[in-house]
């Protein structure tokens, strides 16, 4: 399966550049525009989290990103060099006590925008693994053409 692997420093300019890359990949995969937007935002969330909360803005620490694509889905893995966290202990940002807070929405947004989100802490740091499936009619331009005929 086609794979893109990147190892980048913990700098915010990277997040901007990644939006362009993910836009291009998801466009080539023929995701619809809503899903393309959702994937781009989810990737910016995951990488921002890795930079801020994982690597604590330490530019010496790296963020590893891998993007695996197939006819049916895109899977993006984002790994930092931080100390990890307990996803079960995150408070819901929708609770009345939390809704006015400035922080605490990143992981919630990941879960809302992607079809599957998992965390792996086994290799040190935090690795977020997130997947978006293509809707049946989006499978490929070729299959759309065949349907039309």
């Amino acid at each position: 399966m086609p794979t893109v692997r990147l190892i980048v420093p913990s700098r915010f300019e990277i997040v901007e550049e990644l939006t362009l890359l993910i836009e291009r990949i998801t466009e080539q995969m023929h995701f619809d525009s809503d899903d393309r937007d959702n994937i781009v935002i989810a990737v910016t969330e995951a990488v921002s989290n890795a930079i801020i909360h994982g690597n604590r803005n330490d530019e010496e620490k790296k963020v590893q990103i891998s993007i695996v694509t197939s006819d049916k889905k895109i899977t993006i893995r984002v790994k930092d060099e931080g100390e990890g966290f307990d996803p079960n202990k995150l408070a819901s940002p929708l609770e009345p006590n939390n809704i006015l807070k400035e922080n605490g929405r990143g992981i919630f947004i990941l879960h809302s925008l992607m079809d599957k989100v998992k965390f792996d802490f086994s290799a040190g740091g935090t690795e977020v693994i997130m997947t978006k499936y293509k809707k049946p009619l989006q499978k490929s331009r070729k299959s759309l053409t065949l349907r039309t005929i």
């Binding site: 910016t44 969330e45 921002s48």
Partner: peptide
């Protein structure tokens, strides 16, 4: 604004507060 994420939302919340 083309792209916004939770950090952007946090900035808006900070301004509002």
């Amino acid at each position: 604004v083309k792209w916004m994420n939770s950090s952007g939302l946090g900035a808006l919340m900070g301004c509002m507060t």
